[in-house]
Design a protein around this nucleic acid. Structure first.
Lengths: 141, 141
DNA sequence: GTTTTTGCAAACGCTTTGCACGTAG
DNA sequence: CTACGTGCAAAGCGTTTGCAAAAAC
C-alpha cells in the first residue's frame, strides 16, 4: 500500500461502505496524513492545508481524524506535550518519541510478547502499543 | 518495597536529598499513591484526601505528582480519556487499559525486545512503555 | 530569617460542540 | 431533496500558573 493514489481509492471505498460522504476536505486531510511520515497533529495537518484550501477549518480536521479512526483508516499513535499525533499507517508497528524535539519515529523492531502469560488475566486483548522514549540522533549533538 | 511506612521513609530521604521540603500534603499524597494499585488520577487522589485533609487543593496534588516524577518516585503511566494516571510503582512493568471501564491494570508479563535492532537508529533509548488495550474480565459480561 | 510550598482563582491550550449554511449522493 | 459535513465561534475540561499567605528548615 505504498502508492498514495491507491490508498486514496481504498479510503474512498471504505468510507463509502461506512456511509461516509467523500468531501474534498476529507480527501485532502487523508492525503496529507498518508503522504507524510512525521505523525502530524491535527494542527500540523491544518497548517499544511490552509494554504491550498481556502477556509478549511481546524474543527473539520479534528472531526475527520476521528472519522478516519472509526473507519480503521488512521490511528492516534501518541500524545506529545499534550498534543495528539496521528498516523495513516495502520499496520502494527512501534514508535520512538524524542523527549527533546518531540519527533515521533516509526520503529519496525520485532517484539516477542509472551501472550501465553497474558491469558491468566482473562482479558480480551485487542491491541499492544509499544513506545520507546529517549533522545533521537539529531538531538544528541 | 512492600511496606508502606518503609516506602514513606524512603520518599522522605530521597525528597530531602533533592532539596524538597517534607510537607504533610506531600506525605499524604505519596501515601495515597503507593497505597492503592488502581493508578489514580490527580483528581482521584484529591478526592480521597480532601475528606481527611481540610483545604488541600487540586493544584497541590498536581504539583506534588510532578515533583514525585522528577524525583523518580512516581510515574505518569497512562492517559485514559484525556486524564493522566499515576503509579507509585516505579519498577519496570506493563499495563492493560480496559476501553470500557478505563481501568489500568499492572501486567507482569515478560517481553523480549530486540534491542539489538534498535541500535541501527542511533537513538538513546531510556524507557520502553508497553500498553495493552482491550476489554477487562469484569466488562466482558 | 530565608526559601520553598500551599491554596485560591484565573489562565491556558488542546479538543469538542451547537448552530446555520453548504454540499454529496 | 435529504442527510450528512463544514465553518465559525464559543464552550469544555484537564492541567498549569501568578500571587500573597503559610510552613519547612
Amino acid at each position: 500500500m505504498k502508492n498514495i493514489e491507491t490508498m486514496i481509492e481504498n479510503f474512498k471505498k471504505i468510507a463509502r461502505s461506512k456511509g461516509m460522504k467523500i468531501t474534498p476536505q476529507r480527501v485532502a486531510i487523508y492525503r496529507e496524513l498518508v503522504s507524510r511520515h512525521d505523525h502530524p497533529s491535527a494542527e500540523d495537518i491544518y497548517d499544511a492545508l490552509k494554504g491550498k484550501f481556502a477556509g478549511i477549518s481546524l474543527a473539520t480536521v479534528y472531526r475527520t481524524l476521528t472519522s478516519l479512526e472509526n473507519a480503521g483508516l488512521a490511528m492516534k499513535v501518541a500524545t506529545v506535550n499534550g498534543v495528539a499525533r496521528f498516523d495513516g499507517k495502520i499496520t502494527p508497528h512501534s514508535h520512538f518519541i524524542c523527549k527533546v524535539c518531540g519527533r515521533v519515529i516509526d520503529i519496525d523492531c520485532e517484539v516477542n510478547v509472551e501472550t501465553e502469560k497474558l491469558k491468566k488475566y482473562n482479558f480480551s486483548v485487542e491491541k499492544c502499543e509499544i513506545i520507546y522514549y529517549g533522545v533521537c540522533d539529531k538531538c544528541q549533538n
